[in-house]
């Protein structure tokens, strides 16, 4: 369908995408700070305090500082983007996000020329996040992108879904969305953004580098060691939903493949 504000090059990939329901998107989440069950985040995330919310932006930027979420939002243009969302666990959804391009935020704070990567960090509040009591991952959750990936016009900071504020279980008040990468790259409830020179640590990559690469681009030709990535189960199809083929770069190949020219994608997973 036609998406208000979506850029022309993305719209091709967005044709005929039927979004999942609000109920599906907000009841089936991976957000291990609130528990490892798919329904744990919807049950536990209400404890998270999101107002006030401060994001520290530091490292190789011209205007480092602690920015309130409200201040950031007042500077950005929010638009709707309907993106495929592909989890590394081989399920997928289509989500109508509201948000702004990460590039706009980075331009606003001024990226210095020596910066090559962007590092992100999720809030870590043991009193509000019961999942932190369990050592599933090395908390806090961290992620990273190469600067060109971060500046890509498809990469966004989501602040809403279906025109409403993004629910806490989906990463309120502000989360990353990188539609051509597996979902875990799209880090939630961001409290820190650092521009850095070296490749920053990424939680799943640190935990199990064989299974979760730094890039983690959606790639049907490279299997996860424990399951095939060739097909996916689209959430919402009921008990007998047929698996559907997974698309290279999750269907955004035309837009992003050039970022990885010359890289062997079976090596740089």
């Amino acid at each position: 369908g036609a998406i208000a504000g979506a850029m022309p090059m993305a719209s091709r990939a967005q044709d005929a995408l039927e979004p999942n329901t609000w109920e599906e998107i907000t009841s089936y989440n991976n957000y291990y700070e609130f528990g490892t069950g798919k329904d744990d985040p919807a049950r536990n995330a209400h404890r998270l305090t999101i107002d006030p919310w401060t994001v520290r932006i530091d490292g190789l930027v011209d205007k480092p500082g602690d920015y309130s979420f409200a201040d950031i939002l007042s500077q950005m243009t929010v638009e709707e983007r309907i993106y495929r969302f592909r989890c590394v666990e081989a399920w997928s959804m289509v989500i109508p996000w509201n948000g702004f391009e990460l590039a706009d935020l980075l331009d606003w704070v001024g990226v210095q020329s020596s910066a090559r990567y962007v590092a992100f960090e999720t809030a870590m509040r043991p009193e509000e996040m019961p999942g932190l009591a369990s050592p599933v991952l090395d908390w806090p959750y961290v992620e990273g992108l190469r600067l060109d990936e971060a500046m890509h016009p498809l990469t966004m900071m989501a602040t809403g879904i279906y025109g409403r504020d993004i629910p806490k279980q989906n990463g309120a008040p502000m989360r990353l969305v990188v539609p051509w990468k597996y979902g875990f790259k799209s880090i939630k409830s961001i409290v820190r953004i650092s521009l850095v020179e070296e490749e920053p640590p990424a939680s799943w990559n640190v935990t199990n580098p064989r299974e979760y690469g730094f890039y983690s681009n959606v790639n049907p030709n490279v299997d996860h060691p424990r399951w095939s990535q060739a097909t996916e189960r689209r959430i919402g199809g009921g008990l007998f939903a047929k698996r559907q083929p997974t698309l290279m770069f999750n269907g955004y190949e035309e837009d992003v493949a050039s970022l990885y020219d010359g890289m062997d994608l079976s090596e740089f997973i």
Partner: peptide, 15 residues
């Protein structure tokens, strides 16, 4: 429960 939509949005996995 799965057939009547009472197992959430991914019933096959739950079963």
């Amino acid at each position: 429960l799965g057939l009547t939509g009472q197992l959430g949005v991914d019933p096959a996995k739950v079963i």
